[in-house]
């Protein structure tokens, strides 16, 4: 990546999907751009760029965050998981499988963010009811599905 000259930089050290990454980055670089453009972890998507849609969701030290609202330098010393890291080396998580089984996916652009938020809902609450799931996913916009089948999948992995 070609950076504009004379910008302030920072020596970033961050753990991403279990791997320690050290890079010199411009201080104004967003975490989302660092993940996508520098590391080519393109599962996180930019949709609104202002923290409303949740498509750029990643998990940072156990909490979901909008990576478009966080500077890469703010991630210094943290532990980040993206959809690429949540996906097992072989197969899928129960939740990913439930999204397939319950026909929860259409265009797919919101889905990585949606799944990370849903993983977090299930992590915070073992058997979330429909209202809990709704609260946990209210920051993730989907324009295709009408959400019903997403709710079906997340409520106890579609049980």
């Amino acid at each position: 990546m070609l950076y504009v000259e004379n910008v302030e930089t920072f020596d970033l050290s961050v753990t991403i999907n279990g791997m320690e990454i050290k890079r010199t980055v411009p201080t104004h670089l967003r975490l989302l751009d660092f993940l996508r453009d520098d590391l080519r972890l393109t599962g996180a998507k930019e949709v609104c760029g202002e923290g409303e849609c949740g498509a750029c969701t990643v998990i940072m030290d156990g909490e979901t965050v909008n990576s478009c609202l966080i500077l890469a330098v703010e991630a210094h010393g943290t532990n980040i998981q993206t959809i690429e890291g949540v996906t097992p080396a072989e197969g899928l998580t129960d939740l990913q499988q439930a999204f397939i089984d319950k026909h929860s996916v259409q265009c797919g652009y919101c889905i990585p963010g949606m799944i990370l938020s849903a993983e977090q809902v299930q992590c915070d609450c073992e058997n979330p009811d429909r209202e809990t799931v709704k609260q946990g996913l209210a920051g993730n916009i989907c324009r295709c599905t009408g959400y019903k089948k997403i709710l079906d999948a997340v409520e106890k992995d579609g049980e």
Binding site: T42, I83, E84, T87, V105, G108
Partner: peptide, 13 residues
């Protein structure tokens, strides 16, 4: 099930 679902749930699409 959708034939393109795996790529979409894993972010590989």
């Amino acid at each position: 099930p959708r034939v393109d679902a795996v790529g979409k749930v894993t972010g590989q699409t």
